[in-house]
Computed example of a mutant assay.
Amino acid sequence: MQQHQNAWAQMGKAVIYILVVMMGFGCLLPLLNILAISFSGSAAVTGNQVGLVPVDFTLAPYQKMLEDSQFWRSFLISVERVFLQLVLNMFLVVLMAYPLSKPKHEFHARGFYMKIMIFAMLFNGGMIPTYLVVKQLGLLNTIWSLVLPGAVPIFNVILVMNFFAGVPKSLEEAAVIDGASPMQVLLRVYIPCSVPVLATVALFSIVGSWNDFFSGLIYITKVQNYPLMTYIQSLSINIADLLKSGVSASTLENVTQLSNKNLNAAKIVVSTIPLIAIYPFLQKYFVTGIVVGAVKE
């Protein structure tokens, strides 16, 4: 009887592994198709001849982007934005979550601030009032117009707050007995114990600010100030205009290998490279940070 149960358990595990592999491969197929399209000629792409392998291999889409000085300018603007957003988010989220993690008898105004925070998470002024506020503050066409509107992500505050609430009280009491101030308790007890949730909210901040292109369309009117996602979203090919401008034969030959479809595929590939490089260093904390930070006992 025990042997039959073990056999069924092994078969169950095998089925689960097969399903997971199939699901993973299914998620990978569209990415491989996008990669193949980005390296394929415009005729093959337009004719829907590209599957998982490039057809009429070409580097023209990447050459168009990488030879463009505005591409690199926008790339640096996005890097700056991600850095500023990450520092500001982590600073404000931690400082807001720490007092809110205290019980009501230690922080009497906790309930009041929690209500304000939940209300702000569920309701907001909308796009037009936010734009008017940013404009009145003189932040249009600056990096701060991309950073400040999302300075305090309430969802991240709740995750960190719940994680802080789960830190053993005895650790804080021991630090206080040793003469630690509240700020020292935060820096030397809570933050070292909360690496999983802090890495998780850092990942949220990085991915959100890097992938956001809509804020650039709203708050930035000068192309030279576009972040990367906004800039590559605006790229397009118009061969008729190029012919009128009298481009060289070699340039025209490269451009005819392009279409908006394979150029857009190249945009997707280029834009995901930094995230793919960062994610492996933070993903090991992701599940722990989400599960522990989302549950309040």
Score class of each variant (00 low, 15 high):
Q3V: 13
H4K: 13
A7P: 02
A9I: 11
A14L: 13
V15D: 00
V20L: 15
F25T: 14
L28N: 02
L31I: 15
I37P: 05
A44C: 00
V45S: 06
T46C: 01
G47C: 00
N48I: 00
L52H: 04
V55A: 10
A60F: 02
A60Y: 05
L66P: 01
S69C: 05
Q70E: 11
F71T: 05
F75E: 06
L76D: 01
E80P: 00
Q85N: 12
V87T: 12
N89A: 09
L95S: 08
P99C: 04
P103N: 07
E106G: 10
A109T: 15
R110Q: 13
R110T: 00
G111Q: 11
F112G: 04
F112Q: 03
Y113G: 05
A120R: 10
L122Q: 08
V133G: 07
L139I: 12
L139E: 03
L140E: 09
L140C: 11
L140G: 08
I143D: 04
W144Y: 14
L146H: 07
G150Q: 06
V152L: 15
I154N: 04
N162R: 10
V167F: 05
V167R: 01
P168R: 07
L171K: 03
E173A: 10
E173V: 07
A174H: 08
V176I: 15
D178C: 02
G179K: 06
Y190W: 12
I191K: 02
P192G: 03
P192A: 04
P196Q: 01
P196C: 04
L198H: 03
V201E: 01
L203G: 02
L203K: 09
I206C: 02
I206Y: 06
V207K: 12
V207L: 14
G208P: 07
D212V: 08
Y219G: 08
V223G: 00
V223S: 10
Q224Y: 12
L228Y: 02
Y231T: 04
I239K: 01
A240T: 11
L242N: 05
L243I: 03
K244A: 14
N254T: 10
V255G: 06
V255H: 06
L258M: 12
L258H: 01
L263T: 07
L275P: 08
A277Q: 08
Y279K: 03
L282E: 09
L282W: 04
I290Q: 09
V295K: 15
